[in-house]
Simulated assay, not measured.
Amino acid sequence: MKFYARLILFLVINFGALGLGAYLMNDGPRTTWYANLEKAPWTPPGWVFGFAWTTVMICFSIFMAKLTEAKNNSTIITLFLIQFVLNVSWNYVFFNQHYILLGMINLILLTGLIAFMTFKFKPQLKIYTLFILPYFVWMIVANSLNGYILFTN
């Protein structure tokens, strides 16, 4: 499969994950439960989350398309699927079920996985590794926001 075909495939899957996550959060950011939480002073306005996730998923799709071009094996697909499950499930765990601690564990695991993928595949992807960095940075922000909520509520 050519690079652009893989890119489109990953874009569809990654934006599908965002859609599924939004569905599973059950109006999470607009609920009374979330509104009443003590949130971090650095919590960005709502529109930033949409912009950030759009940027993250475009860049991550490029990263995955390049990675599967350089090396296409079951380990890469398995890591991608674990990332997918962790990414989507956080919305349900945190917003729908209100399990703040479990949400934090979920984010820590996802951040660790993204860090692992960053360093594991850097030798193959070289400069294209930069395309996973927005995901890693956004996970650090997400961890800080979730952690603040966990420790202050």
Rank of each mutant, 00 (worst) to 15 (best):
G50C: 03
Y148L: 12
I13F: 07
A70D: 04
G19R: 15
F131D: 13
N106V: 01
K122E: 08
I100N: 15
L125Q: 01
P41N: 02
Y92E: 14
I132K: 05
F80Y: 02
G28H: 02
A5Q: 13
Q124P: 06
I149V: 14
M64F: 04
G147H: 08
F136N: 03
L107F: 12
I76D: 06
L37Y: 02
K39Y: 01
A142C: 06
F151N: 13
L81R: 10
F121E: 01
N26W: 09
P44H: 02
P41R: 01
G50Y: 02
L81C: 13
F116W: 10
E38Q: 11
S61N: 05
K39Q: 02
L9V: 14
L18S: 11
S74H: 14
G28R: 03
M25Q: 10
W138Y: 06
F15I: 14
T111W: 09
G112W: 01
K66Q: 11
I132E: 07
S61L: 06
V56H: 00
L24H: 04
P134G: 08
Y148C: 11
L150S: 12
I58L: 10
N146I: 11
A115C: 10
K122P: 11
G16P: 05
F63K: 05
M139Y: 10
G19V: 03
M139Q: 14
Y34G: 08
L9I: 15
I127W: 15
L37N: 00
S89K: 13
D27N: 11
V85L: 11
Y148S: 08
L81E: 09
N14Y: 04
V85R: 14
P45T: 09
N87I: 01
N153F: 11
L133W: 12
L113R: 09
A142W: 02
L102K: 09
L133R: 12
N26P: 14
G46C: 00
G147Y: 06
V56I: 13
N26S: 09
N72E: 11
V12C: 15
I76R: 01
N91D: 10
Y128W: 10
E38W: 06
M117C: 06
L67H: 00
F119L: 00
Y23L: 14
P123Q: 01
L18M: 12
I82R: 13
G147I: 04
I114Q: 05
L109H: 00
P45M: 03
K71E: 11
M57K: 12
R6S: 13
K2I: 14
W42L: 14
L150V: 09
L11H: 10
L102C: 15
W33M: 06
W138K: 03
G103E: 05
M139C: 14
I105R: 00
A35M: 09
Y128K: 10
S61V: 09
P123F: 00
Y92Q: 14
M25K: 07
F60Y: 10
F119D: 00
T32E: 12
L9R: 14
A35G: 15
F116G: 05
